[in-house]
Design a protein around this nucleic acid. Structure first.
Length: 205
DNA sequence: CCGACGATCGTG
DNA sequence: ACGATCGTCGGG
């Protein structure tokens, strides 16, 4: 990988969130001795009228890193047991980010399987945002890391370019509203892409 | 202070 | 379809 590749990725992440999300597909994410090739992502537009974004209601202690510069990791804990990781995009104060939803393990398979002993098929190791973090060992300690630096969690440019024609788009998973916004992007036909689950409303009476 | 609920996952 | 399990945030 060359420095210019990294510069190009840095520039992309500093721009609008939708092209940034496209450009993250095919990129490599490494942590805990495991590397995945990203196959599924979701864009979130920060405070800019996106009710599904964690930054929609403004800055809080949890989402603070979203309001900082691009390239940094926004890691959050949800459902009392799962970690998920985003890449912050855009300019400071914009608070847009891309949720990394799934990937294909291309290195460190032994370490990956050691973290997730119950998984049967390799394609399921990082098939979903919480599974991806579990397989890479990503947790709170990754909060705020510059992902393009030489740190514990590293994002690197795609070894092979991903043509636009290979990308599918659809509604984001698990979000209550904004089902008309097709901001989930994935590599068409890739077996490591997570199953789409419609948001289920809570029980009523 | 309190309560509702979540950018999920595994099992049934 | 449901339960696990707890941090976060808005409201009182």
């Amino acid at each position: 990988m060359t420095g210019t590749d990294l510069d190009a990725l840095a520039d992309l992440l500093a721009g609008p969130v939708e092209p940034a999300a496209h450009g993250l597909l095919g990129c490599l994410l490494s942590a805990g001795g495991v590397t995945v090739r990203l196959t599924e992502v979701e864009a979130y537009a920060g405070t800019a009228g996106d009710p599904a974004s964690h930054a929609y209601r403004g800055r809080t202690p949890r989402n603070a890193v979203m309001f900082g510069p691009a390239r940094h990791a926004y890691v959050y804990f949800t459902y009392g047991m799962h970690w998920c990781v985003n890449v912050v995009t855009g300019v400071e104060g914009e608070a847009s980010a891309v949720l990394l939803r799934a990937g294909e393990v291309i290195d460190g398979l032994d370490a990956a399987r050691a973290r997730r002993p119950a998984v049967r098929r390799d394609v399921d190791l990082a098939r979903g945002p919480a599974r991806l973090c579990a397989t890479l060992g990503i947790d709170r300690s990754a909060y705020g890391l510059d992902l393009l630096a030489d740190g514990a969690v590293r994002l690197r440019p795609a070894p092979d370019p991903v043509p636009d024609a290979a990308i599918s788009a659809g509604p984001r998973v698990g979000v209550t509203g904004a089902h008309d916004v097709p901001w989930r992007f994935w590599l068409t036909g890739d077996p490591t892409v997570s199953a789409y689950r419609r948001h289920v409303p809570r029980a009523r009476r």
